[in-house]
Amino acid sequence: MKSSKSIFRIIIGLYLTLFFAYMFLPLIFMTIIAFNANDIPQITPWKGFTLMWGISLALKAIIVMKIRGKNI
């Protein structure tokens, strides 16, 4: 009885792990890619850590604000 219960537990744990991997891996991949210097959105080849995507996004936001005549 006890061993069947622990097998059951392992199956549940495995299922939950798989499920949350399915939920989160795509998002984790996307986050990693946001810091890859590669022009193409890929993890490999890793061309080095960069913040340029974030910076260019911020710059674009600033440009749009300036065009609309707002000061930051």
Binding site: P26, L27, F29, I33, I40, Q42, I43, T44
Partner: peptide, 18 residues
């Protein structure tokens, strides 16, 4: 964005293929 993440995974030279 979540669909884009899957696009990145499933692309021809995407994560899954690699």
């Amino acid at each position: 964005l979540r669909l884009f993440a899957w696009q990145i995974i499933l692309a021809d030279m995407g994560i899954l293929n690699q």
